[in-house]
Nucleic acid binder design. Structure first.
Lengths: 206, 206
DNA sequence: GCATTTAGTGAACGCATCGTTCACTATTGA
DNA sequence: TCAATAGTGAACGATGCGTTCACTAAATGC
């Protein structure tokens, strides 16, 4: 548990410093321009320390994204206010995309074709699945209250909200603003999943 | 207008050969692994001829995509069969994504951050806009027939169908199958835009 | 505390690819 | 026929990759 400014770091201490450096580089220069030497220099580490841990740039950045992802994804409890909850979660996702983490995702997409299958799969379950789970929770809660149609739980529908955000982020250079999120909700998501029943009277579920 | 196998090509003749070579490389090795030398060799051209025309790899590939795009995007006339028309156009888009052209798009996404603004803009209007226009046409036709809700013309809704396909393509390594397209239609698109007034289809009212 | 083991440093190396340059050659058309 | 134009192919310096190695700091064992 030493973390003094002097001395030589090792283990997780050093590893986290490298991740932070990688994410900072990612933010500054974008995925395509992240240089191993730059990451090493920024982390005040030797290049050999990087290659000892990860075989190449792609893996390093994926590891950094993974590290960041696990500390970001929240546990979320639906409040009963359907639209309000969705705004909240969607803003959270958009905010996440506006970080180095988002930049890592962009790079991952760009290299999907030349990336090992398992890595692709792993990042999917690491990022897509947790988001889907949150929306499933919100919709289940809404269904119990009668504010959401049961069809909302179809996988393709549950994936819609995060999918819209991801698509927006990927095809622009920036993540969705609050205004865009509201448009997605009012013109796509709510018309599709909401029953139109007011949540004022909670319904009994079985 | 010479196109004999012997001799040295120039102008458009050579340029098209380079585009074809670039697209072939794209298909074989994926965006990230396209090498200028490989494209030049494949086109039986000098590397200098490439750099004389385009400043770097990104521009060359974008030019190749543009070249391909203009010859692919069709004129489309709605038949009156809403779902049938949508299936048709969506399949067309999915098929297009499964070509080198799709691979070029993936690369473009990956480098959005480090690509000049105007290029991004240009590719958007070159690819996104024509697709949106086709769906707008279909929806307008449907509205006139009473099978589509007027709200379908909201920009974000019109962009939904191509957006779903693009998102699917980008986050998997492959483009949407017919089955996936049908799911998108039946669980997202049709419920959102159709009035249910379709003569052949049974419906539930709003 | 001292010696040994483990882990990180920093510089150098060979390699691949980039983007440029240049002397040479084929094609065009005046 | 000859000058102008456009393409070729090889070489070049620069950059970043991924590896290696001699050296050194930190942790561990005795």
């Amino acid at each position: 548990m030493t973390e003094s400014t002097a001395g030589r770091r090792r283990g997780d201490d050093l590893e986290h410093a490298i991740f932070d450096a990688a994410l900072a580089e990612l933010a500054e220069v974008g995925y395509a321009n992240v240089r191993m030497e730059a990451v090493a220099a920024r982390a005040k580490a030797g290049k050999a320390s990087l290659y000892k841990r990860w075989p190449d740039r792609a893996r390093l950045i994926q590891a950094a994204a993974r590290y960041k992802a696990t500390e970001v994804e929240p546990t979320f409890e639906p409040s009963g206010d359907l639209r309000g909850d969705m705004v909240k979660v969607m803003r959270h996702i958009a905010a996440q995309q506006a970080t180095p983490f988002g930049e890592a995702i962009r790079g991952w997409i760009g290299e999907l074709r030349s990336t090992p299958e398992e890595l692709t799969e792993e990042l999917r379950t690491r990022i897509e699945t947790p988001r889907i789970r949150i929306f499933a929770k919100i919709y289940e809660d809404g269904i119990a209250r009668g504010t959401v149609k049961p069809e909302a739980l179809h996988p393709r529908v549950v994936n819609l909200a995060p999918g819209l955000l991801t698509h927006y982020f990927l095809t622009r250079a920036e993540s969705a603003t609050d205004e865009v999120i509201e448009e997605m909700l009012d013109h796509i998501l709510m018309p599709l999943i909401a029953t139109g029943e007011d949540p004022a009277e909670p319904l009994e579920e079985t």
